[in-house]
Structure formats: structure tokens, C-alpha cells
Simulated scan of single mutants.
Amino acid sequence: MSKKGTVFNVQRFTLHDGPGIRTEFFLKGCPLRCIWCGNPESFKSYIQPGVFQNKCISEEKCGDCKIVCPSENILIFKEGKLSAIDSSKCIRCMKCMAICPSDAIKQWGKIMSVEECMNEILKDKGFYEKSNGGVTVSGGDPILQIDFALQLFKSCKEEAIHTCFESTFYGQWNEIEKILPYTNLFISDLKHMDSSIHKKYTGVGNDLILENLKKLSKKNVDIILRIPVIPGINDSMDNIKITADYILNDMNNKIKVLQLLSFMHLGEEKYKSLGMNYNMNNLDFNRKIFQNKIIEIQQYFISKGINCTIGTKEQN
């Protein structure tokens, strides 16, 4: 039987998460809560409604969502327009989304079977072959839907399609081991080397993540590491030096490349649609000075013999 997963986005012709032209599946559910994350719709593992008040026709002129909603006092209106949905009471039937004529209510996530995913994948098999591309599973974190990802990758392997697994690696090693034989490339972040600081900004410590990446480096697989460089949080040279030591000593530098990803303000509208606060607006920094610092960080990693780029372009 074809396993099913909860997917919040499918991107075709993507070029950033793995080599060549790829189809990327973003799965819902993540064990971390990074405060800089631009995809808050990925946090929860279940389908959610999101509200975009600027699209609402108004309660007076429409009000269809109120008519179909099975419960009272869930839909919250402000200045006559739908502004929020009480997530503590919502049963996520999505009737409001289905009837909304103006797309003011968005469904974050849908259920897809492996067979449905493969139907999308095979549309572009010729592009994968010409560009040495393939399929990437990301999130959220697919580690929370490992059995779905496993069956999907098994199906990809039957079609000789390259596979990439992008994860936080905050999970049990025996779960990660399941997917090793079917994965060509792994991508993961090093967000901060101090476990207490890591927990402050992501909700969890980093001990399990670092141990899993250390184990992964001993396997015959390709690994891309990334640092989402956040001003004032993980861009100190002390943290950078400890990161380099970890890559060199604990992972024996067994990585294809280390990619530095510059912080950008992303996802604010999506946070608002879910009734969540976006906490990065208060991060004040000079973009030019920050970019120069990222170049300095890159040069340090290169000086230590670590292949390092700015952005997601791979270099060998």
C-alpha cells in the first residue's frame, strides 16, 4: 500500500537543494522552532488554515465561511474582515477554505501518497537526466515522516533518480539509518555549537544533532552542511572557530561543501496568517557590514581547509 505524507509545498525546477534540476517536497512537521525560520507553516505536522485578511471580501458582503463553519466563535473578524481563526477550537475541516471565493483562507498542507508524488516526479525525469538532478525531500523536517520519505526514495531508486534528504537530524539514529541505502545526498544545518544557545533560539539542544552528523560522516554518503548566519546570534568568530573544529575533528571534514546562508527577513505574512508573532523584525543590523562579515567567515573556513561557499551554489 502506498504510504501517505503531509506536504505543504511541491516545487518543481528548483536549483538550490541538491545538484541539477530537482523536484522538492516540503513535508509538514518540525522538531525545532528556529526563531528565524521563514516557513512557520511547516512547524505543525497537520493541515492548518491560514488567514490573509487583505483578501477577505468582508463579513457583510460575503460571510460564507461563517455559514459553513461547524463551530461558533472560531472565526475572528477585525474591521469587518476575517483576521484569524482560533486554532485551539478549530477542527481543521477546511470547509471555510473550500467555500471562500477570494482565497482569503489558505490550506497549509495536503495529504499525498507516494504514488501521487511519483506522478509529479516522473513528469520531469528527462530534466533530471540532462542536469544530473533529482528529488529532494525537505520540510519542516522529513525525519518526522521518515517512513513516507523512505518509501518515496525507494520508488525514486527504482527509476534511477538521485535523492536528497534535508533534515535537522534531531531524531533517533535508528530512524535515520532506514533511509541511508536510498539517499545520495544529505543536507543539514549547524545553527550554533553551544547547546544552551542552540536551545534558546531553536527550542532544542544540539547534542543529538551533532552526534548524528558525526555518525553520518562515517558513512559513504555525500553531505552538505549549511550555516544560516544570523547577526548577533551565531556569527561570532568564537562560534565559527568551534564549528570549524567540529567539521575537521568530529566529521573528519567529510563534507562536500559548507554553505553560508545570509539571514533574510522572510515569512512575516505567513506568521500573521497563522496567528503567530514574527520575532525577527526587531533584529537591527547593517546589511553591508554583515555581508562583509560573512566573507570574513568564509575566508576563515577556507583557510582551515574546509570547502566553503556563500549561498547554495556548490563548488568542488
Rank of each mutant, 00 (worst) to 15 (best):
K3A: 10
V7G: 04
N9F: 01
G18Y: 08
I21H: 02
R22K: 05
R22E: 05
T23D: 03
E24Q: 15
L27G: 03
L27C: 08
G29V: 01
C30S: 05
P31S: 03
R33M: 15
I35R: 11
P40W: 04
S42G: 11
Y46G: 02
I47W: 01
Q48T: 03
Q53A: 12
K55H: 15
K55N: 15
C56L: 12
C65H: 06
L75W: 09
I76H: 10
G80K: 01
D86N: 13
K89W: 02
C90P: 05
C90F: 03
R92W: 05
K110N: 09
M112A: 00
M112K: 05
S113E: 00
E120C: 05
L122V: 12
G126C: 08
N132H: 13
G133A: 09
T136N: 09
D141V: 02
I143V: 10
A149V: 03
K154W: 00
C156Y: 08
E159G: 02
E159F: 12
Q172T: 06
N174V: 02
E175A: 13
I176L: 15
K178P: 07
Y182H: 14
N184A: 09
L185Q: 10
F186Q: 11
H192W: 11
S195V: 08
K199R: 15
K200P: 03
D207C: 07
D207M: 13
L208H: 00
L213C: 08
K219L: 13
D222K: 15
D222S: 14
D222T: 09
I224M: 11
L225F: 04
I227D: 01
P228D: 09
G232F: 11
G232N: 07
N239K: 07
A244C: 12
D245H: 12
I247Q: 06
L248A: 08
M251L: 13
M251V: 09
N253M: 12
V257N: 14
V257T: 14
F263N: 03
M264C: 06
E268H: 11
K270M: 04
M276L: 15
M276C: 07
M276W: 07
N277A: 13
N281S: 15
N281E: 14
F285S: 10
I289P: 00
F290L: 01
Q291I: 03
K293V: 01
E296N: 06
E296H: 02
I302A: 04
G305Q: 08
N307L: 08
T309M: 09
G311A: 11
E314R: 13
N316I: 14
N316Q: 09
